[in-house]
Simulated scan of single mutants.
Amino acid sequence: MSEKAFIDIKNLSIGYSSRSGKVIKVLRDVSLTIKRGESVGLVGESGSGKSTLALAALGYFKRGLRALDGSVSFDGVDMLKLDRDDLQAIRGGRLALIPQNSGQSLTPTLHIGQQVAEALRLHSD
C-alpha cells in the first residue's frame, strides 16, 4: 500500500508573457512528490526557480507569473484551482514557507515575538 502524497507537483511549468506576447517559461515540467513526514531540500543556483517552485506549492505566484501546465496538490487539494479565501485558510495554518533569507520575510521594526504571535493569531484557534 503506497502512502498518499502530502505535496504532489506534476509536470508543472510556470511562466509569463513577454511584451511581445511570447510565453517565457521559468520552470519547465517539474515533478516532485513529498510524503507526510518527509523532509526535502531544494538546491540550485540563485535564480534557478527554488523559491518560485516553493511559492507555487502554496498556490502563490509572483506578479506576472502563472502556471502554464501541470498541477500542484496539497493533501489531495488542487492548489491551482482554489480561490483566494480557500488558499488563505490553508496558508500559514497547514502549509507555510520558511524562506532562506528571513530578512525578506520579517519586519525589522517589530519584535520577533509580535510577528510569531500574529501568525498564530491569524492561523490558529
Rank of each mutant, 00 (worst) to 15 (best):
L95F: 04
E3A: 14
L106D: 10
G70V: 01
R84F: 06
I14W: 00
G59R: 02
S20T: 14
N11L: 00
D29H: 09
L106F: 14
G92Q: 05
I98H: 06
L32Q: 00
S73A: 15
S17N: 15
A67C: 08
E38M: 05
S102E: 05
A56C: 07
A119L: 15
S105C: 12
G15V: 03
R91I: 03
D8R: 06
V72L: 01
Q114M: 13
L95R: 02
I34W: 03
T107P: 03
N101P: 01
D69G: 06
V40L: 12
R84D: 11
N11E: 06
S51Y: 06
F74Y: 13
Q88K: 15
G76F: 07
A56V: 01
S71T: 09
P108W: 12
D69I: 04
I7A: 08
G103Y: 12
Q104N: 13
Q114V: 10
D69R: 10
Q104P: 02
R36C: 12
P99C: 08
S31K: 00
V23M: 15
V40W: 01
L106Y: 10
G21Y: 12
M79R: 01
S46V: 06
L97M: 15
R36L: 12
L53C: 07
S48A: 14
L65V: 00
T33D: 04
V30K: 07
I112M: 11
